[in-house]
């Protein structure tokens, strides 16, 4: 299961993009903008695929680290996705309890 360098780079950028995406939608949930139409359209379409993506990236990076393949880049991917997952869990608990 050897992945090419370009695939690893794509995974890294996707992890970074999903983290920024989730930070943005969490920010908008606390201070909603005046017009929500565009956010709702893109958000409804992207949120679930993005969640699946971070879970996939996390598991894939973990698997690659355990196999000791290109550890440095996969640790970065794992860390980014772990931050995303922990961040979303905390926000979910906070919003469900409020």
């Amino acid at each position: 299961m050897e992945s090419s360098y370009s695939t690893q780079k794509i995974l890294l950028y996707l992890s970074l993009f999903s983290l920024v995406y989730f930070i943005l939608i969490v920010y908008w949930s606390y201070s909603p903008p005046n017009s929500t139409n565009t956010i709702r359209f893109i958000g409804e379409l992207l949120t679930i695929p993005m969640l699946m993506l971070i879970i996939f990236n996390f598991i894939y990076a973990l698997f690659q680290i355990l196999k000791k393949r290109k550890t440095k880049i996969f640790i970065t991917i794992l860390a980014l996705n772990l931050v995303s997952i922990v961040f979303l869990i905390i926000v979910t608990i906070n919003q469900l309890n409020s």
Partner: peptide, 17 residues
């Protein structure tokens, strides 16, 4: 997404509006 957000909770997932 719409089915999961029938009660709009959590608000980050269900988006503003």
């Amino acid at each position: 997404h719409d089915k999961m957000c029938s009660d709009c909770k959590p608000s980050w997932f269900c988006l503003p509006g």
